Computed example of a mutant assay.
Amino acid sequence: MILGQPWQIIAIIVVIALGSLYFFAHFFKLGRLIKDTPTSKIRSAAQGFVELEGIASQDHTPIPSPLSQRPCIWFDYRIEKRVQSDKSTSWRTISSSRHPGPLILDDTTGQCLIRLKDAKVYGGIRTSWMGNSPFPTSLSVDRQDSFLQFGNYRYTETIIAPGSPLYALGSFTTKRPIEGHSREGAMGSIIRRWKENYDDLLTRFDRNKDGKLDDKEWELVRLAAKLEAENMEQDLINMEDINYMDKASGQPLIVSTEDQRDTGRKFMWYALFFLLVFAGTIGYFVYIMKPFF
């Protein structure tokens, strides 16, 4: 049967071989990046592609995770329904969501906001359990650690808790709050805001009480706005720099709660697996092609 369909088999082999070769190169590159990129401190990190290690910090009260209500600063969940056919059983995802972030990495020398768009997040606290409703009930949550699990719905949730170890590899940028600030633009915004309450503007600056602002009174308005804009500018100068990590074009953004060595080894094991798949596929191709030579 195989030899009667050589071109179909060859097409499948080519797809598997190319796919496994791609994933081998992908995970091997990630493993090498983690191994070869030195860990930086936020305070002295260079602008560009860097590696950071610290803990997951928070600037707000932890949020309850959607399924188990555990306190966290990030979550990812999936709800699946059992689908039965005549010959097999499969699971169909009916709901899923992921917290958009950002995460805050603190390494004692500073903090960095990790923007999670296009990020690959690994690790965290993962739990999976079953139940009989499209959304987990408190009863099913209470028995999520039970050895005996049953039901037609499967719930999977991963969270990152405050204080968890945090590793990040991506594009690092430091921005000063004063950057992009324009004193003239700030003055214009302040005056426009004041004009929205014209009666209050008259109360403050209509010195001759004629119900309108003349040229000299408008000069007072502009002077007051200038002083407020200068105070705003000084506040921005005194603010701490803001550090970001994003995904740069052509480079990954990896976030993990695991030790960086464990994360790197995991990628190298993935790479080895796909290399073996590639080698096995090529070996099978040679085997089935022998009768043709």
Rank of each mutant, 00 (worst) to 15 (best):
F293W: 14
A46H: 13
Y122N: 04
E184G: 04
H181K: 15
Q47C: 03
Q69H: 15
Q5K: 12
I159A: 01
S256L: 04
R193L: 07
R176H: 12
P100I: 07
G131M: 05
E184P: 03
G188M: 12
Q260W: 10
I159Y: 06
G211Q: 08
K266F: 05
I63A: 01
K290R: 13
I94P: 06
F205N: 00
H181T: 00
A186G: 00
D200H: 12
L236R: 07
T281G: 13
R204D: 08
E80V: 11
V50M: 01
F49A: 01
G123P: 03
I191N: 07
R92D: 15
T37E: 10
R43P: 01
V121R: 00
G280K: 05
T37S: 13
R32I: 02
S40N: 09
R204A: 15
S171Q: 11
V83A: 10
T203W: 11
L139G: 06
L67N: 01
H60Y: 14
R222H: 07
K87S: 10
T37C: 10
S140C: 04
K226I: 00
Q260V: 08
S182P: 13
N238T: 03
R192Q: 13
V141K: 06
D246A: 00
L169A: 03
L21D: 02
W74Y: 13
F293A: 14
K209F: 05
Q251C: 00
M1W: 13
I42V: 14
I63G: 00
R143M: 12
A25D: 02
S171Y: 15
I191L: 10
L113Y: 11
M245K: 08
S57T: 07
G283M: 08
D206Y: 13
D59V: 11
S85C: 05
K226Q: 12
